[in-house]
């Protein structure tokens, strides 16, 4: 077995273990490459049965339109249950990244919406596609991350994980967040996408797209809601995305990589980390940890 075989087997083991222990599992599906790989692994884990849990997409209403199209096509094709959660109060209050800033938008439309969905569904286990190599505070995250009734993450209450034994037992109202891709790196993900022919959103591949330069990032003008500043003008450049999220908060990179092979080749030469394009992680080195304490994935 090579490295990818080991990673695959570990993820499948985690899926099965949690599905067997939890009363109401759910899988967070954020449409990106990690979610695509996670979904593929879930299909493998339960084959020839289907995963007996729904997918949950927290829709901030600011995702790239192409992501939503991909999501709907994929779910239809696989015949899976999908829950789409939108924070309706946030919509009524007109919360968005342009009007309220990245932090407030993320808190209301992402973290709050997620908690609403988890409470509404009474889910006691939620799979997420986060990886430990993404960010420093993630590197200490458990594969099963225990959350209190208030969805809070308490470093002191995290359970030691020994061997392949995962303790997913919770009392009513408590839950675990489960990260089957914990030990995968960004490169592992792309190599696995190639090996398994996993469909991903076309935004990952280079193409001519309308972008503006803003604070050193290339922001794609995905719809008419994006207000242009006087000095800004829309340019058509060949770009792609390393991560996908809300379009106003996701910087594109200039790239000619139009296939998975080309992406892998580009990564070998790349000198920047994938989260660099994400505007929400910028303020300081520990911002992810503060968000996690509040219930962020």
């Amino acid at each position: 077995m090579d490295h990818l075989d080991h990673l695959e087997a570990e993820s499948i083991h985690i899926f099965r273990e949690v599905a067997a222990q939890a009363a109401r599992p759910v899988m967070l599906y954020s449409i990106g490459k990690d979610s695509s790989v996670m979904l593929h692994l879930a299909l493998k884990a339960f084959h020839p049965d289907r995963p007996r849990f729904p997918l949950l997409h927290v829709d901030t209403t600011w995702k790239f339109a192409e992501m939503i199209r991909f999501r709907d096509a994929r779910v239809r094709q696989l015949g899976l249950d999908l829950i789409v959660q939108v924070n309706e109060q946030g919509v009524r209050d007109g919360v968005g990244p342009f009007s309220h800033g990245a932090d407030r938008h993320t808190e209301v439309m992402k973290t709050e919406a997620l908690i609403q969905a988890l409470d509404k569904g009474g889910f006691d286990a939620a799979f997420g596609g986060a990886r430990r190599d993404e960010e420093a505070s993630r590197s200490k995250e458990r594969i099963l991350s225990f959350r209190s009734r208030a969805h809070q993450w308490d470093v002191k209450k995290q359970r030691p994980e020994m061997w392949s034994l995962y303790n997913g037992r919770v009392n009513p109202g408590e839950s675990v967040r489960v990260f089957p891709l914990s030990n995968w790196t960004e490169l592992d993900v792309w190599r696995y996408v190639r090996r398994e022919n996993i469909p991903v959103v076309p935004l990952y591949f280079a193409s001519k797209r309308p972008v503006v330069e803003r604070q050193g990032s290339l922001i794609m003008v995905d719809d008419e809601r994006m207000p242009l500043r006087p000095e800004e003008r829309v340019q058509h450049r060949t770009v792609r995305f390393r991560t996908l999220g809300c379009y106003p908060l996701t910087g594109a990179i200039e790239s000619e990589a139009a296939s998975v092979d080309a992406i892998i080749e580009e990564m070998a030469a790349s000198r920047t980390s994938e989260r660099q394009g994400r505007l929400i992680d910028r303020p300081d080195g520990t911002s992810m940890e503060a968000k996690k304490r509040a219930g962020y994935f």
Binding site: L4, E265, A268, S270
Partner: peptide, 10 residues
């Protein structure tokens, strides 16, 4: 991570 292209048998 970025240093070398990797063959699949790793």
């Amino acid at each position: 991570m970025a240093a070398s292209p990797k063959p699949s048998e790793q």
